[in-house]
Design a protein around this nucleic acid. Structure first.
Length: 273
DNA sequence: AACCATCGCAACCGCAATCAG
DNA sequence: CCTGATTGCGGTTGCGATGGT
């Protein structure tokens, strides 16, 4: 089945967002919630496509975003999760409240990969690079995975982490991971990892994510009249502040330190939008 | 000072998954 | 169940910032 473009690109603005546009989008979402991304730009008075609005909100405007560099602990956790999950950035990001998949992906590509290489480790296998090359040679000989030119994402090897036999992660370009067949094993694998992880209370985090009440403001299907949909009051750190106050602060929101300070005091709710 | 290379990150693109009629 | 619409995701690109020559 073919796919329509998300919007007709005629008359749709592209490129970097202006502060004015950000204000409009934020104002709209905080007042009305997200009913349907496709209608958001029209209702908010923006010449953007819904997809662009969604991305802007998720990656930049959401109040619960944690800005600032990744700590070494976070990096280590990303590396561990990546060895389990591969390039499934959204899954990885779900373990980092306030972080976006885009942010983690960028950080991985620009920093962590380099860091691992400096340590003489292959970013994918976390094994010494020499050994990886050997493996590649063997693959070439066997004429496997012609798409390796696509990059590192095709070689996720989590077998080395566990003796179970079913959790092989296939490259996306070769077809989607056999998620359904392997789902139970996969979930168990991730749970196992989470139980082993002591740096972050992943258990409570995932339970938050699974908690239906917590998911209420993350739902993408609510009506504009529905009191359960995301609104200003759903963001704990905004309670007590007027929308105008917050928007005023946003005049200088390129400096996100304000949010980071708030983040220190308030535990953030889950972040699936 | 001017130019070039590299880096970092926001934003875009296209596909797959999911939803709704 | 089928089909079209919408959302979510991961890969990639574009560009401003920064550093080096």
């Amino acid at each position: 089945m073919g796919r329509q473009p998300c919007c007709d690109k005629v008359g749709v603005k592209r490129g970097p967002w202006t502060i004015e546009e950000d204000h409009k989008l934020m104002n709209f979402i905080l007042n009305n919630g997200i009913h349907c991304w496709r209608t958001v730009p029209k209702l908010a008075g923006l010449l953007r496509c819904g997809k662009s609005c969604r991305l802007r909100w998720i990656n930049y405007l959401r109040p619960d975003l944690k800005r600032g560099g990744f700590t070494e602990m976070e990096e280590d956790q990303i590396i561990q999760l990546h060895s389990l999950l591969g390039n499934r950035w959204s899954k990885i990001a779900s373990h980092f409240p306030g972080r976006t998949d885009n942010e983690i992906k960028n950080h991985w590509n620009t920093k962590i990969k380099k860091r691992l290489k400096l340590l003489g480790l292959d970013p994918v296998t976390k094994k010494p690079i020499e050994r990886k090359e050997q493996v590649d040679d063997e693959k070439n000989k066997a004429n496997l995975h012609p798409n390796t030119s696509k990059g590192y994402e095709v070689n996720v090897d989590i077998k080395s982490l566990d003796n179970n036999e079913t959790k092989e992660v296939m490259p996306k370009t070769e077809g989607k991971i056999e998620e359904k067949e392997n789902k139970l094993t996969w979930d168990a694998e991730v749970r196992n990892y989470e139980m082993q992880t002591t740096q972050v209370d992943l258990g409570s985090w995932t339970s938050q994510v699974n908690n239906t009440s917590a998911s209420s403001y993350c739902s993408s299907s609510f009506s504009l009249d529905d009191s359960s949909y995301p609104s200003l009051g759903q963001y704990p750190y905004l309670q007590g502040n007027s929308l105008q106050q917050w928007l005023d602060n946003m005049d200088s929101f390129l400096s996100w330190d304000t949010f980071n300070l708030l983040d220190d005091d308030l535990s953030l709710e889950n972040r699936h939008y």
